[in-house]
């Protein structure tokens, strides 16, 4: 990356440098200030080089390019009127995130269906085969959702930053907790709530997270799930009343609803991500790559 504000020597493009230094104070506070300056510099230098190539001398080329670009105060204020956005970092995660969101939704739905069968409601004890099935489905669903959440973090901030690292840690712990101690709902569900809430709070201002996905996954689902977990303390407390209607309702209705809610959230996220996914390059782009320089 160029040195801030820009690695241009006076000898190269003195007027462009002066122009960028005039823009700089207006946008300096932004997290994407360097990106903006680099983008404007690229434009102006290309304009100058084209004029030079057509025989215009350097000084005239710079003056004409800057004149065509517009007043620096006006352009800076116009650019500043659009909020900074984390530029998408197109990793394989972000490209395939919508696919994983739909996979996660299917897995959560399957887990919700399998969960009531995993517990014998009459004796409230885990039965081996059904338990393993439910735990494997839940673990796979956490893994798929984890990819979606991490990809969302990367898309929103443009980088795998420290918070994304914390989210990743929470998700790995949730996955391990579900696989090893699936019966301990507070463990994996608590970790999943934390990872989801942190991610959606970051995504709520972005095109991906704004609206329904944030409302469901950022507010409604965590609240409902926490209420269910708190209810679980009373339902399955130190001396649970085995086979009681409360336990049956908890196992057959409340817990599956929690998982189905998360599945619905993944569907909403998947739809939004799919709508925002860039088109694949057209066949005639294959040879020249995504950047057109001519």
């Amino acid at each position: 990356m160029a040195e801030y504000p820009l690695n241009l020597t006076n000898a190269e493009y003195p007027l462009i440098r002066r122009y960028l230094l005039a823009v700089d104070p207006v946008i300096r506070h932004r997290t994407d200030a360097q990106d903006l300056l680099d983008e404007l510099a690229d434009h102006l230098i290309e304009a100058v080089e084209r004029l030079r190539a057509s025989g215009v001398d350097s000084d005239s080329a710079e003056r004409r390019s800057l004149s065509r670009f517009g007043d620096p105060d006006l352009i800076a204020s116009l650019i500043n009127s659009v909020p900074a956005k984390g530029h998408a970092m197109h990793t394989i995660f972000s490209r395939e995130a919508s696919f994983f969101a739909f996979v996660a939704a299917v897995l959560w739905t399957a887990a919700a269906v399998s969960l009531p069968f995993a517990q014998d409601n009459l004796i409230a004890s885990w039965t081996q085969g059904a338990y393993v099935t439910a735990i494997v489905l839940i673990s796979a669903a956490i893994a798929a959702s984890g990819i979606v959440l991490l990809s969302l973090n990367v898309q929103v901030t443009g980088a795998f930053d420290a918070v994304a690292g914390i989210v990743a840690t929470l998700l790995v712990l949730a996955l391990l907790a579900a696989f090893l101690f699936g019966w301990f709902l507070f463990g994996w569900l608590g970790l999943l709530i934390a990872a989801t809430a942190v991610t959606m709070s970051r995504a709520r201002a972005s095109a991906v997270g704004v609206g329904a996905p944030t409302v469901l996954l950022g507010y409604v689902w965590p609240t409902f799930t926490l209420l269910v977990l708190v209810a679980a303390i009373f339902v399955t407390g130190p001396t649970p009343l085995l086979g009681s209607p409360a336990i049956v309702v908890f196992d057959v209705v409340a817990l599956p609803l929690v998982l189905l809610g998360y599945a619905a959230g993944n569907v909403l996220l998947g739809q939004r991500m799919r709508a925002l996914t860039p088109h694949a390059p057209a066949p005639d782009d294959a040879g020249r790559g995504p950047f057109i320089t001519a």
């Binding site: 990356m1 160029a2 990106d35 680099d38 983008e39 510099a41 690229d42 230098i45 659009v82 909020p83 956005k85 530029h87 998408a88 197109h90 095109a207 991906v208 799919r274 709508a275 925002l276 996914t277 860039p278 088109h279 790559g289 995504p290 950047f291 057109i292 320089t293």
Partner: peptide, 27 residues
Amino acid sequence: LEVAGHLSSEWGEVGGRRRRSYRLTRA
């Protein structure tokens, strides 16, 4: 348009300069 989700952008390097290119999203 990018913030609204109608475009996405990618950074590359051309001639030693960083260059951002835009492409249409499905939205």
